[in-house]
C-alpha cells in the first residue's frame, strides 16, 4: 500500500518520505491538488492515507479535502492535514469535513510517525 503526500514544498515531501519509508509504505508525491487528484483517479485503490497541506497554489488543501470526502471512491481514504495553519476554527472545519487528523508544522519526525500510525489504525 501507498501513502500520498500533497505539499508544494519539495522539502516537506522529502521529510514525509523519510518517515513513511521506515514504516514500509511506498510514497506517492504530488506538488499540488490537481496533480494529486490525477494520481488518485488511477491509483485510489492503493492509497492507504493522504497527508495534505493546506496552503498550496491553485486549489487549496481544504477544497481538496472536500472533494475527497464527496467522492464515493475516495472518501474512505483517511486524510491527515499537515499544515502551518494553526487557527482553531480551521482545525475544527477540517475535522468536521472528514479529516482524520491535523498535524501542525513544524513537527518532529516522531510526532509525524505516531500520527501516521494512528491514522492507519496501528497506533
Amino acid at each position: 500500500m501507498k501513502i500520498m503526500t500533497v505539499d508544494d514544498s519539495a522539502i516537506v515531501r522529502k521529510i514525509i518520505r523519510s518517515a513513511v519509508e521506515v514504516l514500509d509504505y511506498e510514497v506517492v508525491e504530488a506538488k499540488d491538488a490537481k496533480e494529486a487528484l490525477d494520481i488518485l483517479e488511477d491509483e485510489y485503490e492503493d492509497i492507504a492515507l493522504i497527508l495534505l497541506d493546506w496552503n498550496m497554489p491553485g486549489m487549496d488543501g481544504f477544497e481538496m479535502l472536500e472533494l475527497i470526502k464527496k467522492d464515493k471512491h475516495l472518501r474512505h481514504i483517511p486524510v491527515m492535514m499537515v499544515t502551518s495553519e494553526t487557527g482553531g476554527e480551521n482545525i475544527i472545519k477540517a475535522i468536521q469535513t472528514g479529516a482524520t487528523h491535523y498535524l501542525v508544522k513544524p513537527f518532529t519526525i516522531e510526532e509525524l510517525t505516531k500520527r501516521i500510525l494512528e491514522c492507519l489504525g496501528r497506533g
Binding site: S9, A10, I11, V12, K14, S84, T86, K105, P106
Partner: peptide
C-alpha cells in the same frame, strides 16, 4: 535545490507561525 528549499521552508514555517 534541497538546501534552498529547506531554508525557504524554515522561514515559511517561522513566519507562518
Amino acid at each position: 535545490e534541497d538546501v534552498h528549499d529547506g531554508m525557504a521552508e524554515l522561514v515559511n514555517m517561522l513566519v507562518g507561525r
